[in-house]
Design a binder for these strands. Structure first.
Lengths: 113, 113
DNA sequence: TCATTAAATAAGGAGTCGCTTACATGGCAG
DNA sequence: CTGCCATGTAAGCGACTCCTTATTTAATGA
């Protein structure tokens, strides 16, 4: 995936990993430190840090400093966008009308040549 | 991500690319051949073929042979699963209640469950 | 039969992903 | 200050992604 990916791609990419989805599930219970977050996983702390970076890049979490701890908080706005996209395309009945609009919107984020 | 990724990861991964999302949008208008699909994109046919393979692996399209053409059809079931996951996690009401619960637990100095 | 067309596959290259271990940063308690 | 603690960053490795061009497969129709 190219470096300058659009926002929606970043969100879907962030969701495309079971560890990151588990982190999101966990964060629904409230803000959590990185250590607490890493505890249930059979993987090193740096690996979790890197997953958090992906989630942060997608706007799905916020990290705030609290002494030597980082408190991770879930942000749901990107999930709203993802949900909107999926729901729009899973609806079979309003197909033709927004199809053109849809395509134009999608193609705008693309490399053209 | 190892080769044996779970189904949901495959779907999100397939959606994490603007070209593939545009293909899905296009297929909402009805079954389409690979050539028609490739036409609006500034990229080679094999590249489109490979994108279609990713979509097929995620269960998002079906390809049926029709003479020397392949007719691609959208399947929405995987989108249902993706939508279900996202909606479950973006539900703000649940999140708020869980958050309140979490706060109370913290105030009591209770350590986990 | 043979050339044409539609599409898939092969091979390869630049870049990214997900993990590791090792080291750096920065708050804190003695 | 000094040594812990929670975390982030660096470097490196193997696998994967996304694209390319070249080749292959398969159906068509003269």
């Amino acid at each position: 995936m190219a470096g300058a990916a659009d926002e929606l791609s970043l969100v879907f990419q962030a969701l495309a990993d079971p560890t990151r989805r588990a982190i999101i599930s966990r964060l629904r219970g409230g803000p959590t430190t990185v250590g607490e977050l890493a505890e249930p996983f059979a993987m090193s702390r740096p690996a979790i840090s890197q997953h958090l970076k992906v989630l942060e890049r997608a706007g799905l979490i916020e990290r705030t400093a609290d002494a030597q701890w980082r408190r991770c908080t879930l942000r749901t706005e990107p999930l709203d966008e993802a949900s909107a996209w999926v729901d729009r395309h899973r609806d079979e009945w309003n197909e033709r009308f927004d199809l053109l609009d849809e395509r134009l919107r999608e193609l705008k984020g693309q490399t053209d040549a």
